[in-house]
């Protein structure tokens, strides 16, 4: 799964291996409990992210976080949140299989995304994330570096999104 799908000097598009992925909904005032359960201080502003080793947390709505963890930790995380639910109501939904993740890296990464993403990508900070659109698909875009993005897309939209990235990578490689 980790083999480069599409690549030339300036950009590489990779299908990334699965992770444990959660949708967390909780009142911002209760965030401390969630941070404790997840073992990572959750960011408070939409667009921000926090990362530590294989844990990642991204604020994508006023009461919504996207959480990433190692696959092996999925059950433990569900259990940890189960424990605090009685006192701190929230919703933690496993969405590990809902999305597939595409890695886009290289100097032309942002340019490749600009074929179908209307955002001004220069405004997305490194370490941040944002739910947006890529062509007809809703995606979550995570910025890991100046030249490194992850794009999470619902499974059934993956062929469309990945196919477009392939077409556009060929186009970029031609340099026209």
């Amino acid at each position: 799964m980790n083999a480069p799908a599409t690549s030339f000097d300036a950009v590489t598009v990779t299908i990334l291996p699965p992770v444990a992925r959660f949708n967390l909904r909780i009142a911002p005032s209760d965030l401390a409990a969630a941070s404790q359960a997840f073992g990572l201080s959750l960011p408070t502003k939409i667009g921000q992210g926090e990362q530590n080793a294989d844990r990642g947390a991204y604020c994508i709505g006023p009461d919504e976080w996207l959480l990433h963890a190692a696959e092996a930790d999925q059950q433990a995380i569900v259990a940890a949140f189960d424990e605090v639910r009685a006192n701190t109501p929230h919703s933690l939904v496993v969405i590990s299989d809902r999305e597939l993740t595409i890695g886009i890296t290289g100097p032309a990464a942002a340019e490749l995304l600009s074929v179908a993403c209307p955002l001004d990508l220069s405004r997305i900070p490194v370490g941040g994330a944002k739910r947006t659109v890529f062509d007809y698909a809703q995606v979550t875009l995570i910025r890991d570096g100046e030249d490194a993005f992850r794009l999470e897309v619902w499974r059934s939209y993956f062929p469309h999104v990945h196919g477009l990235l392939e077409v556009a990578t060929r186009e970029l490689a031609l340099g026209l």
Binding site: V93, S96, R98
Partner: peptide
């Protein structure tokens, strides 16, 4: 209301 909604259409 303390309720949250999450689409799981494609999780399953």
């Amino acid at each position: 209301l303390k309720v949250w909604l999450t689409s799981t259409t494609e999780e399953w």
